[in-house]
């Protein structure tokens, strides 16, 4: 194959799982163990390819709460999911691949059913803030992100 210069094996992507209400409803028809097995096999393939850096699933949105900053004075905290948002953030993977196409390929293999979406976002690194490299907070933020493990 032809040489590829845009390849950089350090690029990390976050695969963000989003499910609509319909997808969640449809998934109730699938035996839970079947879903666990499919997802387990997918995770195993990521691990065995050496590309998985981390990831987690999220508990149901009913357990969560929302802090809304739209009011002028104080943020408003409400229990449960967003009222009118139909795509729920259900979990994520962080993978490290050499190209965007490789990230797309991995994302496409995720065993998700209709109604689900996987949003793929490149994780920024110091080079994205190169113009502000001297900024004290840019430097600190890099450290914070790493300490929090969200890097």
């Amino acid at each position: 194959m032809a040489p590829v210069d845009r390849r950089d094996p350090n690029v990390k992507y976050m695969l963000i799982m989003r499910a609509t209400d319909e997808a969640i409803e449809a998934s109730r028809a699938v035996p839970f163990e079947e879903m666990i097995n499919a997802m387990g096999a997918y995770n195993e393939s990521l691990i065995k390819a050496g590309v998985l850096l981390g990831g987690d699933g999220l508990s149901p949105p009913e357990e969560g709460f929302v802090v809304d900053f739209s009011a002028e004075d104080e943020p408003i905290v409400t229990d449960g999911p967003y009222g009118e948002t139909h795509e729920l953030f259900n979990g994520f993977w962080i993978i490290q691949t050499a190209t965007k196409e490789e990230a797309i390929e991995w994302a496409s293999r995720c065993p998700l059913g209709p109604g689900n979406k996987l949003e793929v976002r490149r994780i920024t690194d110091a080079s994205d803030f190169a113009d502000f490299a001297d900024n004290e907070y840019v430097q600190k933020e890099e450290v914070w992100r790493k300490e929090l493990g969200t890097e």
Partner: peptide, 11 residues
């Protein structure tokens, strides 16, 4: 296609 093929090949 070439890019996809490269990705598949790497995987």
């Amino acid at each position: 296609v070439q890019r996809t093929l490269e990705a598949v090949w790497r995987i």
